[in-house]
């Protein structure tokens, strides 16, 4: 680390939050990653590995009365299926689409929580990854609606009923733009939430590096924000899944 005169907090914070080719491990030498694999790519692979481990091996489906971890996971799955998927997509589509929303929920939750563990880095604070997730939602909003309602039905969803014709000229472009704005808003919300939380934590800890021992109580503040971040990790996974279900449901059932 640089000496205190030439220490630049902005660069330090950005270095720890942006994607890079280096993986800093505590008490171990830094791992240099190959060119085709960046740090956040490793995090994506690791989280899918953990999820496979969690649901492939540790989740015991054959238990009649779920116990321990299986019970915990099952309560989340039931919550996503009944309170998110079926509520916004209807009984039939809701059951069919539940795996997608479970995937969204657990994948984002795992990425968010991994970001809070010092060993790993936050992949959801990378706008490319959140954009990728939102594109999946957008795909379902467009092609799912075409598959279900036909092309005519898809475009009919953009025409609000009971509106005089001159107003439609103004409204239809807004409705079509809204389709992409919704996906864009999903991207920015998750990305900015995770990035902002981590910037706050690192800035508080950075006070100690800049000012010195006097700023040590900042650790307590940082721990407080950290606990808040655990809540935010769950909340953002929930909100992303909920809004995805809402937007897809709006496109699949335009009449109500």
């Amino acid at each position: 680390m640089a000496s205190s005169e030439e220490f630049n907090l902005d660069e330090y914070i950005l270095h720890h939050l942006t994607d890079s080719q280096e993986w800093h491990l505590p008490f171990l030498p830094t791992i240099h990653l190959p060119e085709w694999l960046s740090l956040h790519g490793v995090m994506l692979l690791l989280s899918s590995f953990f999820l496979t481990l969690l649901f492939g091996i540790l989740y015991k489906k054959e238990q009649r009365v779920p116990k321990g971890l299986t019970n915990l996971l099952e309560s989340f799955i039931i919550f996503v299926r009944d309170d998110i998927s079926i509520k916004y997509l209807g009984k039939e589509d809701g059951r069919k689409m539940a795996p997608l929303f479970c995937n969204f929920f657990f994948f984002i939750l795992m990425l968010n929580i991994m970001g809070l563990i010092p060993l790993f880095s936050t992949a959801t604070s990378n706008i490319n990854i959140t954009a990728g997730l939102a594109i999946i939602t957008l795909t379902f909003m467009i092609f799912g609606a075409i598959y279900k309602n036909g092309i005519k039905g898809f475009f009919k969803a953009f025409i609000p009923s009971g509106v005089p014709a001159p107003v439609l000229i103004l409204l239809i472009p807004i409705e079509i733009a809204g389709l992409f704005i919704k996906a864009f808003a999903l991207t920015i919300r998750l990305f900015a939430n995770m990035l902002a939380g981590h910037i706050v934590i690192i800035s508080l800890l950075g006070l100690i590096i800049i000012i010195g021992k006097v700023a040590l109580p900042a650790i307590f503040l940082a721990v407080g924000i950290y606990i808040l971040e655990v809540l935010v990790a769950f909340l953002q996974a929930y909100i992303f899944t909920l809004l995805s279900a809402m937007f897809i449901g709006q496109m699949l059932h335009p009449d109500h």
Binding site: I188, R189, A192, L242
Partner: peptide, 14 residues
């Protein structure tokens, strides 16, 4: 409430 707050928050973050 959470949905509405999230929508406002999205604009704010933007």
């Amino acid at each position: 409430m959470i949905i509405a707050a999230a929508l406002i928050e999205g604009v704010a973050f933007f």
